[in-house]
């Protein structure tokens, strides 16, 4: 019993890495993804962004993560920590998906919202920031939450480059004690509770939405 508790707490210490990856990755993903979604409406940027999104979606995340962790030091001479490489890789990957999600939210808005902003002389930057994107984000909130939940589960890939996250710690316990079932279930509990927590917060936000 004491050993089980020790194992559970040992795995739980991986939350620090898991949550940092999730928060950092999602922050970057939403920030860059939002910019990409808006810049898709710029004639010059549009083909570049399309290519980027297609590339990111067309290759495995594991490959992207490895590429950043192992190749950036040799290509650019900067040594990345496991955490930094993870945040960058998950952030970039997520930005492609977020930009696609937001684009569908933008496209569901009436063209007249853009036109109304124009007729009122609202500069483009402000039109995107205060008129278009807030509505687009509200439209696709459930899809964005799904992306957050997907990202949470994908952070487990950090184990492949040695990050001591929840997943990796459960594997360590399993390997040490020749017992896989319980430690892996414990890791599962951590992920699942986090997912339930994210879902409950979103339900609360959705209820608060004051218009529509």
């Amino acid at each position: 019993m004491e050993k089980a508790l020790y194992n559970f707490l040992f795995i739980g210490r991986g939350l620090a890495i898991t949550l940092q990856l999730l928060a950092g990755g999602f922050l970057i993903g939403v920030t860059i993804g939002t910019a990409l979604a808006a810049l898709r409406y710029n004639k010059i940027c549009s083909p570049i962004i399309k290519g980027f999104v297609s590339l990111v979606r067309g290759t495995p995340l594991l490959l992207q993560l490895s590429l950043i962790y192992f190749s950036v030091p040799t290509l650019f001479g900067v040594k990345l920590s496991v955490l930094a490489a993870g945040v960058i890789a998950f952030g970039i990957n997520s930005s492609a998906y977020v930009s696609e999600i937001l684009r569908s939210g933008i496209e569901s808005l009436p063209k007249g919202q853009f036109e109304a902003a124009r007729t009122l002389g609202i500069p483009k930057y402000y039109m995107w920031k205060d008129i278009i994107l807030p509505q687009a984000i509200a439209n696709v909130l459930p899809a964005l939450v799904n992306e957050l939940i997907d990202l949470l589960k994908e952070t487990a890939l950090i184990a492949t480059i040695g990050g001591m996250d929840v997943m990796r710690r459960s594997q360590v316990i399993a390997a040490e004690q020749f017992e896989y079932f319980i430690p892996l279930c414990m890791a599962g509990v951590y992920y699942y509770v986090l997912v339930l927590f994210i879902e409950s917060i979103i339900r609360r936000i959705e209820k608060k939405k004051s218009y529509a």
């Binding site: 007249g112 036109e115 109304a116």
Partner: peptide, 12 residues
């Protein structure tokens, strides 16, 4: 100034 047929107020 332009008044749209469907107003296009900002709903948020």
């Amino acid at each position: 100034g332009f008044m749209f047929q469907d107003f296009q107020l900002f709903p948020h």
